[in-house]
């Protein structure tokens, strides 16, 4: 079972350490990237942090933000290495320099990993390990989860 370990920051956001590059791994740089399960993309990176990576520009797109507004972005091809596992995808370039690197659900999907968040730590486990997760104490003997109680009154 391949388990990768990250951490929770002071605000409770999960982070892992990654390396990112474009044309060649010689351009790779390391980042602390937050995993945001509310982000449906692969990786979002501030433009100024992307400059040294040799990313290959692909086109433009639009983000839908949490407030429902839309924000245009540049897209570029790049690779992400997390503890020796390398994936490739479209990286959105964020003009806001205050943004940190943001990993999304597409990254987890490409890595075939599931995100497990504990009290103080974060784990990325292979998603084919899901069968080894023991049932919760609330599951009945038939193996199914119990339905929530019906509200009274």
């Amino acid at each position: 079972m391949a388990i990768k370990i990250g951490y929770l920051d002071s605000r409770g956001h999960p982070y892992i350490r990654i390396r990112v590059w474009g044309l060649s791994e010689q351009f790779a740089q390391e980042f602390e990237a937050m995993i945001d399960t509310g982000f449906s993309g692969y990786l979002s990176l501030p433009l100024v942090k992307a400059f040294p990576l040799g990313l290959t520009l692909a086109g433009t797109t639009s983000y839908e933000l949490a407030d429902g507004s839309k924000s245009p972005k540049l897209l570029a091809y790049g690779c992400v290495d997390h503890e020796g596992e390398v994936t490739a995808g479209l990286i959105a370039l964020e003009a806001n320099a205050n943004c940190g690197p943001l990993l999304g659900v597409e990254f987890l999907r490409q890595c075939k990993k599931m995100l497990v968040v504990g009290k103080n730590n974060v784990w990325l486990m292979d998603d084919d390990e899901i069968g080894s997760i023991p049932p919760t104490p609330d599951e009945d003997a038939s193996g199914g989860a119990q339905a929530p109680p019906t509200p009274q009154g």
């Binding site: 937050m34 945001d36 509310g38 982000f39 449906s40 993309g41 979002s44 692909a58 086109g59 433009t60 797109t61 639009s62 983000y63 839908e64 933000l65 949490a66 407030d67 429902g68 839309k70 924000s71 897209l75 479209l90 959105a92 806001n96 205050n98 943004c99 940190g100 943001l102 999304g104």
Partner: peptide, 21 residues
């Protein structure tokens, strides 16, 4: 020159976290 759309969605990607602007 290409612009990416996700069919049926307002944006190709959704993001919930907003950094200080």
């Amino acid at each position: 020159l290409f612009h990416l759309i996700r069919v049926g969605y307002a944006g190709a990607f959704q993001v919930s976290y907003q950094f200080p602007r």
